[in-house]
């Protein structure tokens, strides 16, 4: 247990360094940038005095290092700043939208795990069969497909074509909170779920298949077979247990990345999640929101990486924390 604590402490320190690094890069990136936020906010007609007043209000007339220092201090206290546009705290903006992104990612993750790992297992247990070739081919097709293309395609087929023949199963856009109406919540999310799930599942199918094929070539599997253990037991207890580790890594990173905002899918389906907030705040030059969201997204990925490392130890006794 002492190992895990020491490991966690070390990872935590590294994570904080990374976050500081990210925060610094994003902060200075935006100050080196040629865009003048105050001028943008003031509008084209504004006088120089108005622009200066706005600049003063936002604290942008202070020396750069002073701004940087106060930014770091606030961030260390968990305050990500306030939006330039509506003066709301970035955290409250995020809180408002987190539900959408979490719903999207959790539902999608369940689907892509089932489809991806299932298809991979199917292929690995019958290598070079028709089923294997079919699943591998389909996986490669979705692997090559841009997310927005699949999203548009699903909209066209499952929303518009069905709508034309009078079947309105899946709404084309929008979001209904789970607490308001669970059924409508799920219906609104079916197409976005399918979009992220099908594309992500492709990677999992490829990963599971190759990883299982590798493990099935190991000596201890031959030993298990020689001992007369049944095939399903070998597959699930011996092969899958060992083959699942790269899948777990990928899963952690994917979920961590997506929780920071499912940029493309949210934009295609008009879901008011964090990914949409990022794109809209970037087009409106809302600096604090951009920095806050990038920091938050990085934090999710880092936390996901730590969780993956810990899960690894339980999955694979050969792995030592160091």
């Amino acid at each position: 247990m002492g190992d895990i604590v020491r490991f966690l402490a070390r990872r935590l320190i590294f994570s904080i360094v990374v976050l500081w690094f990210v925060a610094t890069i994003v902060f200075f990136m935006y100050f080196v940038a040629p865009n003048d936020v105050a001028r943008t906010l003031a509008g084209r007609q504004a006088s120089a005095a108005t622009v200066a007043a706005i600049r003063h209000n936002l604290g942008l007339d202070r020396p750069l290092l002073v701004q940087y220092w106060s930014f770091l201090g606030r961030a260390a206290h968990g305050n990500l700043g306030f939006s330039y546009l509506n003066s709301r705290s970035v955290l409250s903006l995020v809180g408002q939208r987190a539900g959408v992104t979490v719903s999207l990612v959790v539902g999608g993750a369940v689907i892509w795990l089932v489809i991806g790992v299932g298809a991979g297992m199917l292929g690995a247990t019958r290598p070079r069969s028709v089923i294997d070739r079919a699943t591998t081919g389909i996986a490669l097709l979705f692997y090559s497909m841009p997310t927005f293309l699949l999203g548009e395609f699903l909209l066209l087929v499952l929303f518009f074509r069905l709508h034309l023949i009078g079947v309105d199963w899946f709404p084309g856009a929008g979001y209904v909170p789970l607490a308001t109406d669970p059924l409508q919540w799920a219906l609104h999310l079916v197409l976005p779920w399918l979009t992220i799930a099908l594309i992500t599942a492709a990677t999992y199918a490829r990963l599971t298949r190759s990883s299982m094929l590798d493990v099935m070539g190991e000596d201890y599997i031959r030993t298990a077979r020689a001992k007369g253990i049944s095939r399903p037991r070998i597959l699930f207890r011996h092969v899958l247990r060992s083959a699942i580790t790269p899948v777990v890594t990928q899963f952690g990173i994917d979920v961590g990345t997506m929780l920071g905002g499912v940029v493309v899918t949210e934009n295609v389906f008009g879901l008011p999640g964090m990914g949409q907030l990022i794109v809209s705040s970037i087009t409106r030059q809302d600096l604090p929101t951009i920095i806050g969201l990038v920091l938050l997204a990085s934090a999710f990925v880092i936390v996901a990486n730590i969780i993956v490392d810990i899960v690894y130890v339980f999955l694979d006794p050969r792995v030592r924390l160091n």
């Binding site: 990210v22 990136m29 940038a33 990345t257 905002g261 493309v264 990038v294 990085s298 999710f300």
Partner: peptide
């Protein structure tokens, strides 16, 4: 470990 798409968009917008 950077969220690349978010980062990329932020960079490009600059």
């Amino acid at each position: 470990s950077l969220p690349y798409l978010v980062f990329a968009i932020a960079l490009v917008s600059l």
